[in-house]
């Protein structure tokens, strides 16, 4: 924990993020090129779903990142509430728009995949509804954290929302096991052998890595932008009190 505390220092974090960003950005580009090559050209069509299986290569990694992003946001919010780390609030605030973006991709691509496979754009089953709630939680967090003149109060209210909303993450994960849903159960699991052909698993994992590297890049950029806006606010307040 003591090592983690060192990175709560904004200046140290800025130095670290400047070192990581070129690598995460380069890795994102490289992984997207290789991942898209396998996803679009070097993988077979599914025997049941045909070519629509290619939507999976963006839909599933987006879903994983949408849930990872919410977990990061909830962990940062807990850290902010308990230890009052200066960087924790900023991390949660930076993560929310990214999570909303990835969740929007999940919902839209899922709908475009659902129409040809299920015959419907949308159905109010447990998996789809809980992902829609995730999207609203992200929007609520964005609105709440910006709703107060004092950013500290906004951050605290948003942190409580993020923690309460975290209950939705396991609901999303296990909704396909707990309820009868139109959505298929997980095909890639750490506990069992994946129920997916290696020819399709390869592009899926490559795209998941590309999305993860992209998420890290975006998060670092947004944290830097948030740190800059905090500095601006501090300077403006100092100038206003000096005048």
């Amino acid at each position: 924990m003591a090592n983690l505390h060192r990175f709560a220092n904004p200046n140290r974090f800025l130095r670290l993020s400047r070192a990581i960003l070129p690598w995460s950005a380069s890795l994102t580009v490289l992984l997207f090129i290789v991942g898209l090559y396998f996803a679009l050209f070097a993988s077979p069509a599914d025997y049941q779903q045909g070519e629509t299986v290619r939507i999976m290569y963006v839909h599933v990694p987006s879903a994983w990142i949408a849930m990872l992003c919410y977990s990061v946001m909830a962990a940062a919010s807990a850290t902010a509430l308990i230890w009052r780390h200066p960087l924790a609030d900023i991390t949660a605030r930076a993560a929310a728009p990214i999570g909303a973006g990835f969740t929007l991709i999940v919902l839209a691509t899922g709908s475009l995949w659902g129409k040809p496979m299920w015959g419907t754009w949308w159905v109010w089953d447990a998996r789809l509804t809980s992902v829609l709630i995730l999207f609203f939680l992200y929007l609520g967090h964005i609105a709440l954290s910006r709703a107060f003149d004092d950013p500290t109060r906004g951050a605290r209210a948003a942190a409580v929302l993020a923690l309460v909303g975290f209950v939705n993450v396991p609901i999303i994960k296990f909704s396909v096991d707990w309820w009868n849903t139109l959505h298929q159960p997980a095909s890639v699991s750490r506990l069992a052998a994946p129920a997916i052909d290696p020819a399709m698993l390869r592009p899926l994992l490559l795209m998941a890595l590309a999305f993860t590297a992209y998420f890290v890049t975006l998060l670092l950029l947004r944290i830097r932008a948030e740190l800059t806006s905090r500095k601006i606010r501090a300077l403006q307040l100092a100038q206003a009190s000096a005048e």
Partner: peptide, 23 residues
């Protein structure tokens, strides 16, 4: 895309648009 072009390309295009817009 085996007759599913109307679903696959918009899904990929929308993903690219949202990802690029976030950056």
């Amino acid at each position: 895309m085996g007759g599913h072009a109307a679903f696959i390309w918009p899904a990929l295009g929308l993903t690219a648009t949202v990802l690029i817009l976030m950056l």
